[in-house]
Design a protein around this nucleic acid. Structure first.
Lengths: 219, 219
DNA sequence: ATAATAAATTTGGTATGCCAAACTTTTTTT
DNA sequence: AAAAAAAGTTTGGCATACCAAATTTATTAT
């Protein structure tokens, strides 16, 4: 054995996808290295290999972009990740904020049809436990038309769809407030000086920072 | 990342366990290398590392034995392997002879409690789809008092419990004969000159070689 | 006992994926 | 435009886990 090249490769591609879909800033070596928590030298080396394999494209302005081929691998990896998360939460009773690290491992399991069998077993879920959409077997992602809660309309009722920040700290914070995908939420008041707001959740008014509201996706 | 040491390590320990429980011959470097399909130089190097970690004991006669610590890791790995096999067969509808390679990957997933949750989800099965007993969370294996079909009594009815040879070739061969754990089998006749036999399976008489009968465990 | 064979070991080498430190280029600030 | 900061790049290095080939040590057969 000892050839888990796909393992590392999939992580680079997945992270590239995440970075380029989040901000629409160009992804460079440094930002990718930061996201992967790796040394820029390491990342540069790997990105060159990915470029040789035509999985990423390196432009003259040093930006790193996924090719169609790379994008597809990224999306298939994300599909596997999210399906495993559904499995862990629905079948093994994990909390939705505990499954990320495990899914990071499971997503790299190699098999022609495991993912599709898992998909069927889970009744072809459309969203993972964080509310993120699960790409189909071709890597196509359904359009979600969700908006950031930070741009919500006052006094209109919304449902939390997913969270744009999946850091443990954020998930734990929301856990304490009992906010998760499916939670009903209403914007009551917006404080201009720091863009924080008062929201109604579970019949209670709570205060949310701008950082929090811009990472809570609702519809 | 890129430290999947446990991955490789677990494979060595698992294989050592298998070899020393099968034959009671001493396991040496060559036999281990053959079983792992690796170069003897590689195996020697790794075995020395395992020895430093007190997972195996190297005696003066060059035999390689698991320590209690190594044995425990081997059994926990086997537990994970077999539980995943049950999952793949029972939940994802794989055939029992298709799951080995996938379980080889899944068994190395690292987590405190994943295995126990999986165990509960599957209703704490005692045997895997090949009929092999699943060690408990402490690595203890239930006593199975099964015998090789090659030492069965003529005209007595037995049930196939598990298969001592899990090679793809053997599993495929048995698949064609419709023999699997749970199958009823009766020894009709034993041919002295090559130790092959006639057995009744599913109301039909079939011929089985000595090699086959000694790998079919019944009770 | 000696020759042949098998096992054990040493040596030098490979690929992957990572790092720190030094250095160069580009961008930003002043 | 010069200085400072940030980004990009090169270099040399590390650990893991593998290999082939040569060599040494045991074992087995004659």
């Amino acid at each position: 054995m000892a050839h888990f090249s796909h393992h590392s490769e999939e992580n680079y591609l997945k992270t590239l996808h995440k970075l380029s879909s989040r901000h629409d800033k160009k992804v460079n070596n440094i930002s990718l290295a930061r996201a992967l928590k790796l040394n820029p030298a390491t990342v540069l080396e790997m990105v060159r290999k990915l470029s040789e394999k035509k999985l990423v494209q390196l432009s003259g302005d040093k930006s790193i972009k996924l090719t169609a081929k790379g994008e597809k691998i990224a999306l298939i990896t994300i599909r596997r990740h999210r399906l495993w998360e559904v499995f862990l939460v629905e079948k093994l009773n994990y909390n939705w904020d505990e499954v990320h690290a495990l899914a990071e491992q499971l997503e790299h399991i190699e098999s022609k049809d495991l993912t599709d069998r898992l998909d069927s077993f889970l009744n072809k879920p459309a969203y993972d436990p964080h509310g993120d959409p699960i790409p189909d077997k071709n890597g196509k992602i359904r359009n979600t038309n969700s908006i950031r809660f930070s741009s919500a309309v006052i006094d209109k009722s919304y449902t939390v769809l997913h969270l744009a920040d999946t850091s443990d700290a954020f998930l734990e914070y929301l856990g304490k407030l009992n906010i998760k995908p499916g939670t009903k939420i209403k914007l009551k008041e917006k404080l201009e000086y720091d863009q924080s707001c008062i929201a109604e959740v579970n019949k209670r008014n709570i205060q949310l920072s701008e950082k929090a509201t811009s990472n809570i996706m609702v519809h």
